[in-house]
Design a protein around this nucleic acid. Structure first.
Lengths: 158, 158
DNA sequence: AATGAAATTTAAACCAT
DNA sequence: ATGGTTTAAATTTCATT
């Protein structure tokens, strides 16, 4: 059973998604269920890996001024696994995925500035065996960076 | 002054980044500062928009099985603003940015399945005035989805 | 801005249904 | 799986430096 088949889990997730530090007491008042029930549900949601409370730090406000998408074409394809292994280690990479289309890999990188980005590309990425071609596009302005909308997921289980 | 010029803010951010529900008491024990100091710092970090505690919900575990990147070419360019305005409203879009390169806009979308994604593209995106061309690539496997590495930012203020 | 201490609120653990 | 009760712990407020 998915968590969102359950109305109670859904309500808890929705509240904590907005404010990760909301107390169980407050949540219980909001949705009229006993505090201990909320707490049990919360523990299960976290244990099941559905929910994780994190402190999100604004990259711009701490000095990351070069946010870019690096698309990578891997040839020969036998290097795919080792490339993912190596890229995962790079601290600048905040998002790494196997992607369909003209390229094989998409890596989103957070760098302090262009110099840092350039160094990352030439010294850490281009040198990897199997990196045949790359294409780097800058994210010039972020308009939205939000969480999955639970309303949309909810419909799926009906 | 950036938050990371300050060793104390940095330590607080680093701990809360990992566990957003860590108590101020525990944080204060970890870094040997009075609880009330931690709390004051925390309030300032949140007020300044540097830190926000959120509940992160795993998209896969709640029924989002089609995660894709939609690149959009806008012509004529005068439609750029209205397109961003309209796209921001779409709940499926979790990331929206102005991007350099062959396209103008990158939107990352979370859909329940291919049918949902197809409907989103044809009924909500392709119909917008100024959307000249789009290119959709599927994220087939996510290897990493992490927060900005504070170590890298820290160096910038030295 | 940082701290210590007191008052209030919350979380945790336990047990029962 | 839910909920009530008790004990321990954390938060909040306030006063002080």
């Amino acid at each position: 059973m998915s968590a969102l088949d359950d109305e109670l889990d859904y309500k808890i997730l929705k509240l904590l998604q907005k404010d990760g530090r909301m107390s169980f007491t407050e949540i219980s008042k909001e949705i009229n269920v006993a505090v201990s029930t909320i707490r049990h549900r919360y523990i299960n949601l976290v244990e099941d890996g559905i929910l994780k409370i994190i402190g999100r730090v604004d990259p711009n406000k701490i000095g990351f001024n070069a946010y870019a998408s690096v698309l990578i074409s891997v040839k020969p394809k036998s290097f795919m696994n080792s490339i993912f292994e190596e890229l995962t280690k790079l601290p600048e990479i905040s998002f790494l995925a196997l992607v369909s289309g003209d390229f094989d890999v998409e890596a989103n990188v957070m760098c302090r500035d262009m110099e840092h980005l350039n160094e990352l590309l030439s010294d850490k990425i281009h040198v990897l065996e199997g990196v045949f071609d790359t294409k780097t596009n800058m994210y010039m302005k972020i308009y939205k960076f939000s969480q999955p909308d639970l309303e949309l997921a909810k419909l799926s289980s009906k």
